[in-house]
Design a protein around this nucleic acid. Sequence first.
DNA 1: TTCGTCGTGATACGACCGTACCATATTGAT
DNA 2: ATCAATATGGTACGGTCGTATCACGACGAA
Lengths: 206, 206
Amino acid sequence: MPKRVDHEERRTQIAEALIQVAGRRGLHAVGMRDVAAEAGVSLRLVQYYFQTKEKLLFYGLQHLTARFTARVGARLAAAGPDPGPRATIEALLLASLPTDEESRTFHLLYSSYSILSVTDEALAAQPFIDNPDAAENALTGLLQQAQKTGLADTGIDARTEAISLLAMTATMGTSILVGQRTPESAIAVLHHHLDRIFNTGQTPPA
Amino acid sequence: MPKRVDHEERRTQIAEALIQVAGRRGLHAVGMRDVAAEAGVSLRLVQYYFQTKEKLLFYGLQHLTARFTARVGARLAAAGPDPGPRATIEALLLASLPTDEESRTFHLLYSSYSILSVTDEALAAQPFIDNPDAAENALTGLLQQAQKTGLADTGIDARTEAISLLAMTATMGTSILVGQRTPESAIAVLHHHLDRIFNTGQTPPA
DNA sequence: TTCGTCGTGATACGACCGTACCATATTGAT
DNA sequence: ATCAATATGGTACGGTCGTATCACGACGAA
């Protein structure tokens, strides 16, 4: 047999090319030839490692979520060992905001895939649909933990607040993307709600 | 001259066909031939009244926002003459949730246009970009008015809460669209925040 | 060494899409 | 009645897109 190339490595390389060009020109505008050119390979190669465009798009979505998960993990690690629940939540939410080129691409493509999945049933059956649920559950758990340790207001409903925080973050992310809002104002809104939920010590509970 | 047909009426008819087919198969998948077939006219006619696809898409967006504005107005009128600020806000927010076929199409297409505008500068220059600002200002005004009349908690920041409510509504609308959340749960979250903002009389201020 | 398979290139094919072109019936103005 | 502008149909053109086909070099196993 010939060169015996690492398939998974090549697939990753091509998937990153897809993400690059899709982030630049939009997911709807990306063709196989664009991906090939961006990856520096021939069109045939893209066909070889992904037989069809649909499979390429699916793999691109998987790779995108994996990259995002890794990035969030890095942010959490950067917050130091065992940060408080509030710091953890803050890192989680802020990592989702499109503040640099990478997170901007994440947000744009994830939104594109979501909208696409509404009218594309094959895409709707893909695994990324349970990812938001995982985030919601994680955030809910963190809030409940904070309530038990007296850090968060016990009067709030953890799940409702988790849903709210994630929902606000998502929309404001899109607002940043279209240039309607600045990252700073989005962060300010999030801080406002975190201040409301968490006992800062400056505003003791009645 | 011949039949002297009403251009605006025909353009509206074609634009509605665009909205129909785009709501069904996705905005990215709609072609001029699809629109023509849906409207029951020839491809040539679509070209005649809109010279290019880009212009058709722009007009479709305008028509979409006009239809949505009219729908919200109808909801407000249905809430009775001079409803309280809370009822007004509630009608405003709930009208934005995709609960039936029409609002589902609204939400899907508006989101599609938004995402598209991120990578399409011609679309980004379109008027719909200031529409969210208008909603935000209106909501802020209503909240401030409610604060002055003692209906809403004076401790909240009206604009921040307006931004939050709109942001939550938008994301939860998309969640409903992709089948991740039910309209009821979204409404429950919104009610929770409205209860927090408004003095219900059951929880007197300290 | 031979052989079969893996990796890669070049190119062709059929479909579709937006747009342009040609034709023609209709009808108000002159 | 003639003319010119309007409204509409039919169809062709150039491009692009996803996919398929043909070809061939490389290399490990026998």
